[in-house]
Write a protein that binds this DNA or RNA. Structure first.
Lengths: 195, 195
DNA sequence: CGCTAAACTGAGGCGTCCTCGACTTCTGCT
DNA sequence: AGCAGAAGTCGAGGACGCCTCAGTTTAGCG
């Protein structure tokens, strides 16, 4: 079962390829922020000064492109999550984690759809997200501030729904939804965002 | 400001037009159930045995087609809502109303997106929906079972989010989200669906 | 039966997705 | 410096969907 390591003597990745990849990521980020994740990929390629085939060479699917974009962002997010998970107040930590993820997911319109569409490329992030969610729910349950059987999956559903809502209604409406669900989830209601 | 009624001596609508309209609605219903509201309209026209131009003649936009489809369904739904609104238990009525609408909205994948996309054609149903929601929240507040400032708009947001969730996660997950939010909304928690 | 408005038709312009064979350029090696 | 070839790039092109509109058909009415 061990790899006989064919030792393909990997060449260093080409400089122009790296440049194009970076350029594509930058433009995709901009375009997705402006028009949502459904934006034209040909437009992205055009803006990046690159042929459409080059885009597909780097990112075979739209989901792959989004996943690459998310990767760096997620680094910071997960770090923040891990930090939060250490905090003293499990209920507040859980609430803040959910809110942070929702803020994060609202970066591109349509991201929520992508995330819950079950694209293989995005599953990695999702799995990690749910796992981290489980940590929060377990701590909260241990502290006795969590309603019965809430799980990380419930958190994930809530986060997606709230992110989606943020894209369609106003952010305020989405926040009210979030408050409602968190109030139903936690026995000690967290301090609502609005004073 | 009164209409000088040009009295255009209206002709009876043509029989073939009515037939085609019915056929288009029937096929659109089927296709949207199978593939969601994003399905190809050319496909709908094909299945209805009609040219694409005919479809556009009857329904100038996708939203118009969806609105027409929803109209009859909404009749029944609003009737049910009015009935519920008379019931003895405001909290239970509100919860059941929300659940009923979510069930209804889950008929076509992507319907939630359409509803909250602010299409003029669909605003009519939405307005009526929110108005009815206000009746439920007001009754519940009067009975003292509603958290502070919840409005019909909050209900609408919740319903859309839950419907969207139902389309993407499992129905069970969406129901859990709904339970959570309702628990946060109502001070007397409604009996959860699951024992 | 003929007139006419209403309705139907479907080709066509445009945009997007994605592929693939031909072409270019960079890297590693001598 | 020069070369071989792997790696990367290009962009035309087929497939499909949206929507329009000029030409044609057809049902209702007198």
């Amino acid at each position: 079962m061990s790899d006989p390591q064919p030792a393909p003597a990997r060449r260093r990745p080409r400089a122009d390829a790296l440049r194009n990849r970076q350029r594509l990521l930058a433009e995709a980020d901009a375009v997705f922020r402006e028009e949502g994740t459904g934006a034209s990929l040909e437009g992205v390629a055009r803006r990046a000064g690159v042929a459409i085939g080059t885009l597909y060479g780097h990112f075979p699917t739209r989901a792959a492109l989004i996943a690459a974009l998310l990767e760096e962002r997620n680094q910071a997010l997960f770090a923040y999550g891990a930090e939060l998970a250490e905090g003293p107040d499990p209920a507040a930590a859980l609430a803040e984690w959910v809110r942070a993820v929702v803020r994060h997911a609202a970066a591109y319109q349509g991201l929520a759809d992508q995330l819950s569409a079950g694209n293989d490329e995005l599953n990695e992030s999702c799995a990690e997200m749910t796992a981290l969610g489980d940590r929060f729910t377990e701590r909260a349950r241990a502290a006795g501030v969590l309603r019965g059987d809430t799980t990380g999956a419930d958190l994930f559903t809530l986060m997606n729904a709230a992110a989606w809502s943020r894209e369609h209604d106003t952010p305020e409406q989405a926040d009210r939804l979030l408050d409602l669900a968190l109030a139903g989830m936690l026995t000690t209601t967290p301090p609502p965002a609005a004073g």
